[in-house]
Design a protein around this nucleic acid. Structure first.
Length: 491
RNA sequence: GUCCCCAUCGUCUAGCCUGGCCUAGGACGCCGGCCUUUCAAGCCGGCAACACGGGUUCAAAUCCCGUUGGGGACGCCA
């Protein structure tokens, strides 16, 4: 399942090349569920930046929460990224494979007096936090173990970092610009839990440093983590990477995008018949722009992407625009590729066998006829039933309106002529049709609609001759005959 | 509660840094028209925004301050 990670030197030096040098970015999801659409956008911006700068994009799985991480989630992340075409140069690396590194670095901080053992229990801390909050005080850790000088805790103990108590931590954010935090507002965070596992804020720092990450680009929900991480980089003696905090994606009600707003799993979009390139194009425009341009090829995105034009404010996810985008990609995509992507959907619709039996090139002709009328592959596959099944249902209202007795003679004439013709190609059909119109003094619409209803059961369809071509000669004739029967029985 | 971020049509955004070219442009959606064998697609047109209040300036969507509103963070989650 995992691609070969290649030679990953875990002990690699820090920020090789430094600024202006080789760019190394990462996407670091925690495997606690499916791959979220917001995660994909974060990954995308990182990937685009890496590709543009000819740097490396690294996939790292942050699975230090053993109670919530699952293998399924890791598979979903990998599969989701692969589907949208975001390939990584290193990884997936898993933090649980690197536990020793975190422990070593944490203990090193302790040795240097930059961290201390805290024997306050989780319950006590929780109680104190609630109490402080009730009184309207700072909910953070009060630092009571900071100066106890516990050298070797007997029972459970967590290792805390001695965070700086004064001064400021300044971030020159790639997107938000300069952001300043007062160190006095930060408490001493736990870096090693009592179970020996590192906490997030510590493992990210160790990994980002050891992996030589030059630019940390993540959601802006992490902005307030940054002033806790920067002192850690410094304490550990690592170079500090650049940071960039992307705005969040929200639902229509301006709350954080969640299941309540519809599908948020990338793979759900695959199932709903979206093209990966359409989703990518939509997502990149959610927060990034290049003048008035809406549609971008991947090559263009790589060429044009820059953090300068990333929006600072959160964006509302608009499913309708995504649908439009998808329709654009279906309409303008390479016919053959669309046909290939459509195949699984046809199979799912129970039409797999029928397509195989259809004449060569049928699927591509079908795509050509339907692509301007379909917004998703699911829609397209659904429409295929009309052309691939022997029996169709004729819409009652359509039949009543168009399959009437007056049109029967013309329908019969048309059917007879088609049957008698050895040529079933579009020009020949066109010729036959026009002739019948002329002879019977009919206008196009007067005959076209009844024929359409007979052929497709509906009043809306692609051009008639395309429809006939898709149905094939035998099926076309059979449906015309059936239509005539129904017209005779009508009014 | 405290800290941080943000603020242009319903939504995504251009413009803001380097004030005048902005009568604020584009896109989705919506409405109307054209095209037309139907439905689409396409094309044309319409509705629709600088959150508010103060400054600065000859001039502010653009710069400054405040207010309001929205979002995020305050875990032995990530």
């Amino acid at each position: 399942m995992f691609r070969d990670s290649g030679a990953v030197d875990q002990g690699r030096g820090v920020g090789k090349g430094g600024p202006l040098g080789f760019v190394r970015v990462r996407f670091a999801p925690s495997p606690t569920g499916y791959l979220h659409i917001g995660g994909v956008r974060t990954a995308l911006f990182n990937w685009l930046f890496a590709r543009r700068e000819k740097g490396a994009f690294i996939l790292r799985i942050e699975d230090t929460d053993q109670s919530r991480s699952t293998e399924e989630a890791i598979c979903a992340i990998v599969e989701g990224l692969q589907w949208v075409g975001l390939d990584w140069d290193e990884g997936p690396l898993r933090q649980t494979d690197r536990m020793e590194l975190y422990r070593q670095h944490a203990l090193a901080l302790f040795e240097q007096g930059l961290a201390y053992w805290c024997v306050c229990s989780a319950e006590e801390l929780e109680a104190r936090r609630k109490e402080a909050q009730a009184k309207g005080l700072q909910p953070g850790y009060d630092g009571r173990c900071r100066d106890r000088g516990i050298a070797k805790p007997s029972g459970d103990a967590a290792l805390r970092f001695k965070a700086p108590r004064d001064g400021q931590t300044v971030i020159e954010d790639l997107i938000k610009g300069r952001v300043v935090f007062e160190n006095s507002l930060l408490d001493d965070l736990i870096i090693l839990r009592s179970n020996g596992y590192p906490t997030y804020n510590f493992s990210v720092v160790v990994d980002d440093a050891l992996m030589g990450i030059t630019h940390v680009v993540r959601g802006d929900d992490h902005l307030t983590n940054t002033p806790r991480q920067i002192p850690l980089f410094q304490a550990l003696g690592f170079a500090i990477p650049r940071f960039g905090h992307l705005p969040m994606i929200m639902g229509a009600d301006k709350t954080r995008l969640s299941k309540r707003h519809g599908a948020t799993s990338v793979l759900a979009y695959r199932e709903m018949g979206y093209l990966p390139d359409a989703l990518v194009n939509y997502l990149v425009r959610l927060g990034w722009s290049h003048g008035d341009q809406e549609i971008f090829s991947l090559a263009e995105l790589i060429d044009k992407f820059s953090f300068d034009h990333v929006q600072k404010s959160a964006a509302v996810f608009n499913p309708e625009k995504l649908l439009w985008m998808n329709a654009q990609y279906i309409k303008n995509g390479e016919q053959k590729r669309i046909a290939e992507l459509l195949l699984p959907f046809l199979e799912q619709a129970g039409l797999g066998e029928a397509v195989k039996k259809a004449p060569t090139g049928w699927a591509e002709r079908f795509v050509l006829a339907l692509r301007e009328r379909s917004q998703t592959l699911v829609e397209m596959a659904t429409a295929a039933g009309t052309y691939l099944r022997d029996e169709i249902e004729i819409d009652q209202a359509a039949a009543t309106k168009f399959l009437t007795q007056v049109i029967v003679p013309s329908l019969e004439k048309l059917t007879g002529r088609i049957e008698a013709s050895s040529d079933f190609a579009v020009p020949a059909l066109d010729q036959i049709f026009k002739q019948v119109l002329e002879e019977d003094g009919l206008k196009m619409g007067q005959l076209a609609q009844p024929v359409r209803v007979a052929l497709t059961g509906r009043t809306a369809s692609p051009g008639l001759f395309e429809v006939m071509e898709l149905l094939g000669r035998e099926r076309t004739l059979a449906r015309l005959r059936k239509g005539i029967e129904q017209a005779k029985a009508g009014k």
